[in-house]
Simulated scan of single mutants.
Amino acid sequence: MINIAICDDISYICKQINTYIQEFYIETEEQFEIYIANDAETLYEIMKKEKIDLLFLDIELPDINGVEIGNYIRKKMQDDDMQIVYISGKQDYCRSLFDIRPMNFLDKPFTREDIHKQLKDYLKLCKKFFPTFSYKIGQDTFFQKIDEITYFEIVGKKIKMVTKAFEILFYADMNQIEKELDKFYFVQIHKSYLINMEKIEKYGSKEVVMNGGRRIAISRSKKDVFLNKVLEFEKNKLFTKF
């Protein structure tokens, strides 16, 4: 699921972008959650509650301009992952936008094709720099950034995927997931658990503690495999032993 925010003080601009995104969804079946704000304060509230992946931002908001918001995102929130597409009827902001590193800049008026191009560019960027794990619920396919996954757990006949933000159940085969994610340093430490090594807070001889405090036992049959993976990580001191 990709979280997209649209912020423009002109309501019909927000509705127009929203419509174009919905059309893109129909064509591609990519999953989007869309949040709309008509001012900076509303946008700030959205960003406090949700992790926004892609932001369409009017640079000429009446209360706080888009440059200030961009600086807030990069410096105050320390969010370098959010991709920002600025929207403006003017072209004299290039120098002030340099430190914000926007993904692109759209001139008003823009077209359906302009918005679709930004969505396609974002998806290409995600696949290159933010690998995703795909899973199905019913007929719908969802995508989750791999570096945000904490662990997978077998629950009955389903798999539970746990991230910092949410947990979700779906049908899948744990062995297939392990094969797919092995190169991203996921390791099965128990027949029911596949964990992200980068989300380990600390570990011992019998259990690991994941980010968020969840303790997971290391089975005897998986101990050697786990310790071999640990050797690769200890060089970078990504987690500590206890």
Score class of each variant (00 low, 15 high):
F130M: 09
A5N: 07
Y72S: 03
K158D: 14
E29I: 12
N104D: 15
D107P: 01
F170Q: 12
I218Q: 11
G138P: 02
T111W: 05
I216W: 08
N65H: 09
D140N: 10
K237G: 03
I13L: 08
K223W: 13
R215W: 00
L55H: 07
I2S: 08
D53G: 14
A172P: 01
S134H: 14
I154C: 12
D79C: 08
E27W: 07
D107K: 14
D224I: 12
Q83A: 07
E30I: 04
I10E: 14
M161I: 13
D114L: 02
N65D: 15
L119Q: 09
P131I: 10
Y72P: 01
Y20P: 07
G138N: 09
I13P: 01
E180Y: 13
Q83H: 01
Y135N: 13
N18G: 02
A40E: 15
N228M: 15
L169H: 14
E201V: 05
T42C: 01
K15I: 04
V187W: 11
N65Y: 12
Y135E: 12
V85H: 04
T42D: 03
I218C: 10
M161F: 11
Y203T: 01
T141C: 12
D81S: 07
F166Y: 15
T240G: 00
K117Q: 15
F239N: 03
I13H: 04
S11D: 04
I195H: 05
A172Y: 14
K145T: 08
F152P: 09
K127R: 14
I59F: 04
D173L: 09
Q139T: 08
L54R: 02
G156D: 06
K117A: 13
F32R: 06
A40D: 13
N65G: 08
E180V: 10
D8L: 04
T111V: 04
F130K: 10
E180S: 14
Q31G: 03
Y93D: 02
E27L: 15
I17D: 09
L169A: 08
L181H: 13
R101G: 00
K206P: 00
A217P: 03
R95G: 00
Y20A: 03
S88R: 04
F242H: 03
D63M: 11
Y35L: 02
A37Q: 01
A5L: 04
I154H: 06
V225N: 15
I195R: 06
V187E: 15
